[in-house]
């Protein structure tokens, strides 16, 4: 494989899916886009978008969708929930680790989902989404909070626990949505188990 580009073998349809999911994650951060009624738990629906990107587009396209959104937000577009944007949220903010956690999380969810398709059984899918959408995200998010606030790790972990109930709801929503979407729109992720031995691509381009 030539190292021409991470994008080289993406079709125009893949490009459009990546862009539309990046846009979807942004739209889920808009105020009033969706609400869970009178919830006292701080919920940002953007993490739902991140989990959906992994569970629906798979590791590679999902990663690129999240990356694209983050690059635009870092560049100063107010695309993070609550209209936030700019380098602050990727560097010195106490929550600066979470965007990087999203990038890891979407890859974990995407890779594990490829193993679970086409059946996509509920409990394993739930486990995969918890692993990517919560464990992987917090794995980077919590230590960065500790570093940026100069706190011991346990204190940062306690602080982040307030997001846990909301994140668990989002995991369940992701699995239920992904199940239906994969049925309505098959072929988004190539299942790992049934994938034929991949042949060298016939590609005349340099």
């Amino acid at each position: 494989m030539t190292a021409r580009s991470a994008f080289a073998r993406l079709s125009v349809r893949d490009l459009a899916q990546i862009a539309i999911f990046a846009a979807l994650i942004a739209a889920l951060g808009f105020p009033g886009a969706l609400s869970l009624g009178a919830s006292t738990v701080p919920i940002t629906f953007q993490t739902l978008g991140v989990m959906l990107a992994g569970a629906i587009l798979g590791a590679r396209k999902g990663f690129l969708a999240v990356l694209l959104l983050l690059v635009l937000a870092a560049a100063g577009l107010p695309l993070l929930s609550g209209g936030r944007g700019g380098l602050v949220w990727f560097t010195t903010s106490p929550s600066a680790g979470y965007p990087y956690g999203w990038l890891l999380g979407v890859v974990v969810i995407g890779a594990l989902t490829a193993w679970l398709l086409p059946r996509y059984p509920f409990w394993p899918a739930l486990g995969a989404t918890v692993l990517g959408g919560i464990v992987a995200v917090y794995l980077i998010g919590v230590p960065v909070t500790a570093i940026n606030l100069g706190l011991p790790l346990w204190a940062a972990a306690v602080d982040s626990a307030k997001f846990l109930p909301g994140d668990l709801v989002k995991v369940v929503v992701t699995v239920l949505v992904a199940k239906q979407v994969h049925r309505a729109y098959p072929g988004l992720i190539t299942p790992r188990r049934t994938a034929p031995v991949s042949l060298p691509a016939v590609d005349a381009r340099a």
Binding site: V12, Q180, V181
Partner: peptide
């Protein structure tokens, strides 16, 4: 939320097809 998210995602995917 599921009943809301499914049509949003499916319609977004169809829009992606059309844009592609």
């Amino acid at each position: 939320v599921v009943a809301l998210a499914v049509p949003v995602v499916v319609r977004s995917l169809y829009a992606a097809d059309a844009i592609g």
